[in-house]
Design a binder for these strands. Structure first.
Lengths: 143, 143
DNA sequence: TGCTATAGACACCGAAAGGTAAGAAATGGA
DNA sequence: TCCATTTCTTACCTTTCGGTGTCTATAGCA
């Protein structure tokens, strides 16, 4: 993979799955930054994005149809759209091989890997507390 | 509701803000559970939910209009809807005081606190990598 | 009497998300 | 010759999201 000179930070900073935990506590209150962060999270916390992120994290490099097959329920339109967006946000790379049935490979960038690691906490939370949420819902709906 | 027998852990497990970090790696591959988890994350990763979660985490207990004032841009409809949903999911409590201009207080449950803690990682990620994402976008859009 | 304030419920309506389906482009194989 | 394959794009249409505006109940107050 050649591209993506992520200019500001070195690759060495990312590989550690817990890298996002050290230093820099959430002590921040600039409303402009906060707005940008909100917007970014809103885009990135998208259902399909999270699923594709997980899949690529686990499987490495995959081609278009492969992802479509493994992310159950996604339409081709959403797949294209989501991948394009991830590429634009610098989360994934898109490599086109100029062969005649087209072949396009997708893989995570270091940035994508770090996001995947950050989401890990939410993922674990959901797994661990799924039952609690369902129980709460049942209790709520019973009234 | 058709609870898949996921019950089996006590409330006492939740209060620690870092509880979601210890043990239990994401080693899990039951497609049914995975679907439920996806759905849960999709619901919980909602924009307004995240903002209210943050606000209540920071401020403690707040009443309806207070939240409306501090979550900039939310409509009354969305506020009601989101709070109702959070209550249903067991993330927040709703306390009605039978006084004459009505007064209703909202606060996070331990479950809500733990979710807030889990999202913390994503917030930090977004803060730290905001510039990288914007740079990636600029590069992408320049083509 | 009539006005205000609080926490909603409810209906209407435009905008946006997302699904379906068709087509395009290029080439090897039946 | 014609079809299948792969990765999209585009058009069309339905469903959902979310904003606005109206209505309620009740007590205090002018």
């Amino acid at each position: 993979m050649e591209n993506q000179g992520q200019r500001g930070f070195s690759k060495a900073e990312i590989p550690d799955p817990k890298a996002w935990l050290d230093g820099t506590p959430p002590a921040e209150s600039d409303p402009r930054v906060e707005r940008l962060v909100n917007e970014l999270i809103g885009r990135v916390a998208d259902k399909w994005t999270m699923l594709i992120l997980e899949l690529l994290e686990e499987k490495g490099t995959l081609r278009f149809t492969e992802i479509g097959r493994q992310v159950e329920g996604i339409s081709q339109k959403m797949l294209t759209q989501t991948l394009r967006q991830m590429e634009r946000d610098g989360l994934a790379t898109r490599t086109v091989h100029p062969v005649v049935p087209p072949r396009v490979d997708y893989a995570l960038t270091p940035l994508g890997n770090s996001l995947s690691a950050a989401f890990c906490g939410v993922w674990i939370w959901a797994e661990r507390h799924l039952a609690a949420v369902e129980e709460a819902r049942a209790r709520f709906d019973a009234l």
